[in-house]
Amino acid sequence: MTAKYERLANAIRDKIRSGELKPGDKLPSISQIREEYQISYGSVRGAMLVLKAEGLIEGRQGTGSSSKTRTARTDLLLVTPRPRCPPAVRARWRVRELTAGICPGHENAP
């Protein structure tokens, strides 16, 4: 079974992919999302952190979150299938993905 934060992140990715959420559009408040999806604050927060790390949304405390301008990188994230694997493995893949081209030789790091 998919974690609640992953389901929410996928739902928001789908809205961005379909154009329902355009760059600069405000996302609903955490309270509204919690009510709509019947999930906890922690699940909403987890989904938002994942989407921020992917560069799909941006936000600051007090102003809410909004969809970011799409780039070739974010478009790739929207079409790349998400493998089902343990969180620690996904985190390691994510670090490698984010550091690609920044740290020469990072592929060989333990």
Rank of each mutant, 00 (worst) to 15 (best):
G105N: 08
E36F: 04
L76S: 14
C85I: 13
P28F: 06
A72I: 11
E20D: 13
R17D: 08
G59D: 01
A91I: 09
H106Y: 07
Q32F: 07
A88D: 15
T2Q: 09
A3C: 07
L56F: 04
A88C: 10
R7M: 04
L78W: 05
L56D: 01
K4W: 09
S40F: 04
C85T: 14
A91F: 06
L78I: 02
L51K: 01
A47I: 01
Q38L: 04
V79R: 11
V79T: 15
S43R: 00
R96S: 11
R60V: 06
G24L: 05
R84Y: 11
V50L: 13
L77A: 13
G64V: 02
V50F: 05
K4Y: 13
P86D: 01
G46M: 01
L27T: 08
I12F: 10
R90Q: 07
D14I: 12
R82T: 15
M1T: 15
S31V: 02
C103A: 14
M48E: 04
A3Y: 04
V89D: 05
H106C: 13
T69S: 08
I16F: 01
P81I: 03
R73P: 05
L78E: 07
G19D: 08
N108Q: 12
A53F: 04
L56W: 02
W93I: 14
L21D: 12
S18Y: 08
A9P: 00
D14R: 06
S31A: 13
E35W: 02
S65V: 13
T2F: 08
K26M: 09
A9W: 00
P87H: 05
A47G: 09
L27H: 03
L27I: 10
L77V: 14
Q38C: 11
I39L: 01
A88T: 15
S66T: 15
V79K: 11
S31I: 14
Q61K: 15
